[in-house]
Design a protein around this nucleic acid. Structure first.
Lengths: 167, 167
DNA sequence: CTCCATGCAAATTATTTGCATAGAC
DNA sequence: GTCTATGCAAATAATTTGCATGGAG
């Protein structure tokens, strides 16, 4: 299991190297450091947290470089950017990591991942129909999780009680 | 057709009125003005453009009010916020306007709307499975439109030619 | 040795906030 | 008359940019 992760890292470094060469971009240590940090984890992280993670631990990479590199990584397809809200973008490894989508609780902001094959059918169909060469997608379902749904019901009941008491 | 639009406007004003009353919020002219501007159009618009639209035309509504009202409208469900990228959020009427999703060209930023019933199946299924009460969704497909796909191919051909010439 | 990528801090953009006042209720 | 929503400008947050320098090619 651990070995598999090592293997992925090797492949990914190779892919990023090729990508940078093709673009005539330099292969700097900072860039590979950021790539690695993203591939070490199995969840999303935002730019600022990534910056802190790198700098508090050991190295010294500027915010500008973090943003610049994230852009490159997204362009290379090795990293996904998820824009959950206006001030809430997160990044996550994409290679060797099953394609998945997200359900977001609008109340507690909890994010749960899921996967449904029907999305692939939509992509294929719509790409054909509208003549787009579709490379990726983002699907977000919004609603209330079981907990927040329960709290809401209780709070409504509470309100009703208050009104009754008030009258 | 035009009459239908008038009819929608009446219904929507009524719904927004009820919403504001329920929240104990005031029914100000600015709020209804913004609601109307959004319902007059059949496409998306961003906060700044909406602000300009209102102020250049006739009235005088501050940015703060525009943002505040957009928030309320989204909360009421009468307006949808689409977050296409990190600096690219747009708003659009939601009531009496068929639910639809978007294909975005990553090159020229063109947005095409589409509708696929399979998305409803995913929502129902995943809501059940993960115990979420799903109220809405956002599906974005990203790729190259036919035009940009063509340009890309030509540009690649061009590059090859250059390299050959250079050697 | 050349020139791009980096670090840093200042700049920018979109959005939010604080405060005084107008106006909805 | 009361108190909230507004306008305005200043504040904030996330991201980008300009410039001098280090280091990849």
């Amino acid at each position: 299991m651990h070995k598999q992760k090592q293997q992925v890292m090797v492949e990914v470094r190779k892919l990023f190297t090729d990508f940078l060469e093709n673009k005539g971009q330099r292969k700097t240590g900072e860039r590979f450091m950021i790539l690695e940090k993203l591939y070490e984890r199995n969840d999303h992280i935002d730019a600022e947290a990534l910056y802190n993670l790198i700098n508090k631990q050991q190295h010294n990479v500027s915010r500008a470089t973090v943003y610049n590199t994230l852009e490159l990584l997204v362009e290379s397809g090795l990293v996904m950017r998820h824009q959950f809200g206006q001030h809430y973008a997160e990044y996550e490894k994409a290679y060797g990591y099953r394609q998945h989508d997200h359900i977001i609780c609008t109340e507690c902001k909890k994010v749960v991942e899921f996967c449904d094959p029907r999305i692939q059918q939509i992509k294929t169909k719509m790409g054909e129909l509208l003549e787009f060469n579709i490379t990726r997608h983002e699907l977000h379902l919004y609603g209330l999780c079981a907990d927040c749904e329960k709290s809401k019901k209780e709070s409504v009941a509470e309100n009703v009680k208050e009104k009754v008491t008030a009258v």
